[in-house]
Design a protein around this nucleic acid. Structure first.
Lengths: 69, 69
DNA sequence: GGCAAATGTGCAACTTATTGCATCTTATTG
DNA sequence: CAATAAGATGCAATAAGTTGCACATTTGCC
């Protein structure tokens, strides 16, 4: 799962919850600019940033042993 | 899954592969200091940093909808 | 089409992560 | 116990992420 896929997951989830980037950025406490970069896969956020966004969206991430894709 | 748990997963996997932090840092191309911080949960690495480490260790991460824990 | 909201971009200031080095504390092994 | 390797910490310089602002582009709705 790369940064673009991560961004897409977040964008999909946000749209599912019917909130705008601006609203989400305010709720999460992350700058709008950063959120935009995260969703579009252009940024390289820290884990804290990512976790805050995922948490508010009701998402979480897990580490797994890579199986034959 | 928080930063400490992430660090532990990485440390466990590294030990399973029987390599030292220094060896892993050289293989991954990440500074030893950063790797130490990641494993101990003290750092706040970027996704790129984390991805590089996970990739070399044969690990991957997925985003999921949070279910009732 | 036209308007308004939402999303994306360039830039600069500010904050924070990354890295290497020296040093210290813990294992580990003979 | 002694010696060596592995792991951890403080610090300073460098590299990179974060943010807000102004402005451009796209999207959605009437």
């Amino acid at each position: 799962m790369n940064k673009f896929e991560i961004g897409n997951e977040i964008k999909q989830r946000r749209k599912f919850l019917k909130i705008t980037q601006q609203e989400l950025s305010e709720i999460v406490g992350v700058g709008l600019r950063s959120l935009i970069d995260i969703e579009s896969g252009k940024g390289n956020p820290t884990i804290d940033q990512l976790q805050k966004v995922l948490s508010v969206l009701g998402l979480t991430f897990e580490i797994k042993v890579k199986s034959n894709e």
